[in-house]
């Protein structure tokens, strides 16, 4: 996983609450057995008409957002299915940071495992960003995980909260599995005492 320290990029908008992971990556694309290549299918049913032509009514498709790497959206982003294909698709498309008033739990968690930083700001802060972005084509922001600040030069700057442990892992690009394996002794000790961890009765 790539570490995330500080990132500057063009901001794009998705002006809808409760965007579910079925929309982020529709099920017909879940059949791949790799982690990569999902970006082309991101928001597929919204982004494309007839699966080919870019939908001109989908805000993200506008030329001014080309190359965007920060997505700003509304509350409860990423609800629904636990599919990690959703953050894979966002990352593969080029997003490193998603800003919203709130996120669904599993999605929020999945982002950190893939080097994407989900930033929670208040409804009014998100609204301010929406307005700035719409006013200024090519609007860029900088997300600084070390300082826990997201802002734009001489414009807005918002502090945000993030769990220390998750921040630490993302800053270092650390992999959870490696961390957990350090506790092998504790896991083994637990298994010897825990009744449910003993093998099943003889199977028929």
């Amino acid at each position: 996983m790539d570490p995330f320290k500080k990132h500057t990029g063009i901001v794009t908008l998705l002006d809808l609450p409760n965007v579910d992971t079925d929309q982020i990556i529709p099920k017909q694309f879940l059949k791949r057995i790799e982690r990569t290549g999902f970006g082309q299918f991101l928001f597929y049913d919204w982004r494309f008409l007839d699966g080919k032509k870019p939908n001109p009514e989908f805000e993200m498709n506008a030329e001014r957002y080309r190359g965007a790497s920060i997505l700003v959206t509304r509350a409860n982003f990423g609800c629904g299915s636990s599919r990690e294909h959703a953050p894979w698709a966002l990352l593969d498309y080029g997003f490193r940071c998603i800003i919203a008033p709130s996120f669904a739990d599993i999605f929020y968690n999945n982002c950190f495992k893939n080097g994407i930083l989900p930033v929670k700001l208040s409804e009014s802060q998100v609204e301010t960003i929406f307005q700035r972005v719409r006013m200024t084509p090519g609007y860029q922001m900088t997300v600084d995980l070390e300082k826990k600040i997201v802002g734009s030069d001489n414009d807005v700057a918002f502090g945000f909260e993030v769990d220390d442990f998750r921040r630490h892992c993302l800053l270092g690009g650390l992999d959870d599995i490696g961390l957990t394996l350090q506790y092998e002794g504790a896991i083994r000790a637990y298994e010897t005492q825990h009744p449910e961890a003993t093998p099943f009765p003889a199977r028929p």
């Binding site: 636990s82 990690e84 495992k113 959870d176 599995i177 957990t180 394996l181 896991i187 961890a197």
Partner: peptide, 20 residues
């Protein structure tokens, strides 16, 4: 509870999960 694929790998490897 439901988990993502990275966590599936985590459980396969360690039989544990890091959870708040």
């Amino acid at each position: 509870f439901g988990i993502g694929t990275s966590e599936v790998e985590h459980v396969l490897t360690t039989q544990c999960l890091l959870q708040d």
